[in-house]
Design a protein around this nucleic acid. Structure first.
Lengths: 253, 253
DNA sequence: CGCATCCTTGAGGGCCATCAAAATGCGTGG
DNA sequence: CCACGCATTTTGATGGCCCTCAAGGATGCG
């Protein structure tokens, strides 16, 4: 992982732990070359607005972001992005997005002009397939959020979210052995879980009292990952890393 | 619309009301030619199973289907499909799906071999883009479901779902002037809204008492569409038909 | 060391799951 | 045509989850 970041500082985490191994080093270079420039944004800064026509897509190089939809004066979070995510690749095909992208904490982003993407679509069919794959991954994560909203009460949904973020950071080499560090507040977690920050505080308290996980100022500490994943009914297959759904899995049905 | 179905009986509803107008008649023929054979399935029949390796994708020609995920012996619905949907186009890139596809009522489906899709990806870049677009539409719908789960109580979520299905059927020419007909039961609606059939019954009762909509045995009757959409906080833009997010919209920001 | 942000705790009430049971409509076969 | 079985729809009562309002405590930064 450290090698990848050294060689491809802006895109070395794209699909890491998933299909990155299917990329040739030439393709990795092509991808790295897509980044026209690197920008930074600060906490709560809007990276992209719903409905805006955009001529570029954005790679999340460092930091966290959320996709939000504003309605009736309130902000709702429908998704979270971690480093290595091609956050709004889909704006290339949709032209206008149905949601906003907002930085959580300071972020570093790579700007990819749509003209460069269009060229790549013509010349790099394999890479194009991987780009498509990465947007399908987003949809799979969405489905899992819907499932958990249907299935679990808030404290268990919280466990699922923490397990998911931990796993996604693990995929890109940014997890710690006992959890992860982030700029996420309890209020952020609440918005992702569709609950209030007050209830999120109680949910986290419940997880702490059960000895499952502790979350303090963005830092998850958990020395029993299996217990956390069990409470959250978390099965990482939908992230399409290793496991039953992995593209290269031999587990045929 | 009737013309399209006469000319392209199996695929005439694909992206109808959305980007179908961007397809040339040659492309429409190519698409129609992808259907290797047509099959039927009966109510509750599983069309595709999670984790199964599949060598084809499925166009929903007639009828309804849901995407489900089973966990702990219970079935959860994360998505609904209407005629014209390329239901599991994403299985082409994902190889194994994270969910099942289950027929609601009798359905007619078109089978598209992945080998044909692979060929098309090479030879038809524009059509490929439209295929990608259609999977991005699914993701946008997922996001809206997450939003509504965060935002609305069950009766209003029900209104949103009814408004969405109505609009999607409208897009493909299958809506009625005062609602739609379907094989959906109250129990099906409940699963889609993440509630119980008992509470769905009370939610529908609330909508009926408010004079907003009536749902009886799969038939939605509504003579005040604006009221229904208002209660469900329904804004059709996320379906990328006409409106602020439409690909050809002049509403630039 | 003052201020802003974040976290924590308590009380009251609405939404909705669950258990229980009954009524309605529909298709089948007698 | 009616009897019957079955799925679907409807209604009531109880209790848990979680929203809301309210207030207090902790943490970090200038």
């Amino acid at each position: 992982m450290t090698n990848e970041i050294a060689e491809y500082p802006n895109t070395g985490r794209f699909l890491a732990g998933r299909l990155r191994h299917a990329m040739t080093s030439r393709e990795k270079s092509v991808l790295e070359g897509l980044i026209e420039r690197v920008e930074v944004a600060e906490d709560d800064e809007r990276i992209l607005s719903r409905g805006a026509v955009c001529d570029h897509s954005t790679m999340l190089i460092e930091g966290f972001a959320v996709r939000t939809i504003d309605e009736n004066g309130k902000r709702y979070v429908v998704s979270v992005q971690t480093p290595g995510d091609f956050m709004d690749l889909h704006s290339f095909a949709l032209k206008r997005l149905d949601h906003n992208l907002v930085a959580i904490g300071p972020v570093k982003i790579g700007i990819v002009p749509h003209t460069a993407l269009a060229k790549l679509m013509d010349e790099e069919p394999h890479l194009s397939r991987l780009f498509w794959f990465s947007t399908l991954l987003d949809a799979a994560i969405h489905r899992q959020w819907i499932l958990k909203l249907h299935q679990l009460k808030a404290s268990r949904r919280t466990a699922h979210l923490l397990a998911e973020v931990w796993q996604r950071l693990d995929n890109v080499g940014l997890a710690l052995s006992d959890g992860f560090a982030s700029p996420l507040t309890q209020s952020d977690l609440a918005e992702m879980c569709g609950t209030t920050s007050i209830h999120m505080n109680r949910s986290l308290g419940e997880l702490r009292r059960k000895g499952v996980a502790e979350f303090k100022r963005g830092r998850l500490i958990c020395d029993n990952r299996a217990a956390l994943e069990k409470i959250g009914d978390f099965d990482p297959s939908y992230l399409y890393g290793s496991g039953a759904l992995a593209p290269g899995s031999a587990l045929d049905a």
